[in-house]
């Protein structure tokens, strides 16, 4: 598979679209079935964050998702066009708070009227980092914005058809 790129307007609905495409590509390319849920959750979190950043800073810009299968891994990069490292909690050196800390689970007392309407920034990334072994979060070097890249090992070419004829005959 060559690189596949997806661009979408900053709507929560399209996070689901991205998830479905990611799952389809991951299966096609030979990512182990037991990792597909992880792929879906991770890209969903990365895209939710990007949509959130765009809605506040770049509502007319498209979120970009790049799928790549080079180097025996399946990698997904989600690129936003907001301020670099916006909505990335914690230090630039990569030490970020856990989801529990972000949700302020120790917090007590009467919740404010809007308390549950606004999720703490960085929660999606914290979840990705708790889930996926290979994650990097960095400012984009090709313009403004942030790039979140996640990768998974692939099983190789076993699940791919040997040639184009098999595609026509195949039942996958």
């Amino acid at each position: 598979m060559a690189t596949v790129e997806l661009q979408f307007g900053a709507l929560p609905l399209h996070v689901r679209t991205a998830r479905l495409i990611a799952a389809a590509l991951a299966r096609r390319i030979g990512v182990e079935e037991s990792l597909i849920d992880e792929v879906k959750l991770a890209i969903g979190e990365a895209c939710s964050r990007a949509v959130d950043v765009h809605r506040r800073h770049a509502p007319t810009e498209l979120v970009t998702v790049r799928f790549d299968d080079s180097d025996d891994v399946f990698s997904i990069s989600v690129l936003d066009a907001g301020p670099p490292l916006d909505q990335v909690a914690g230090d630039a050196d990569g030490s970020r708070p856990t989801v529990g800390e972000l949700l302020d689970l120790a917090g007590t007392g009467e919740p404010e009227a809007d308390a549950s309407l606004q999720l703490p920034s960085g929660i999606g990334l914290a979840l990705i980092e708790g889930l996926v072994d290979d994650v990097s979060v960095a400012a984009r070097n090709d313009g403004p914005g942030t790039r979140v890249t996640m990768s998974w090992p692939r099983l190789g070419e076993l699940l791919l058809p040997a040639d184009d004829d098999d595609v026509l005959d195949g039942d996958f």
């Binding site: 959750l41 979190e45 949700l103 007590t108 999720l119 929660i123 999606g124 979840l127």
Partner: peptide, 20 residues
């Protein structure tokens, strides 16, 4: 079938409300 951090946030929000 699927739960993400937004869903977790909603459940935690619900927990805080009932605890109040």
């Amino acid at each position: 079938d699927f739960l993400d951090s937004t869903g977790l946030g909603v459940l935690v929000g619900g927990l805080k409300r009932v605890r109040a």
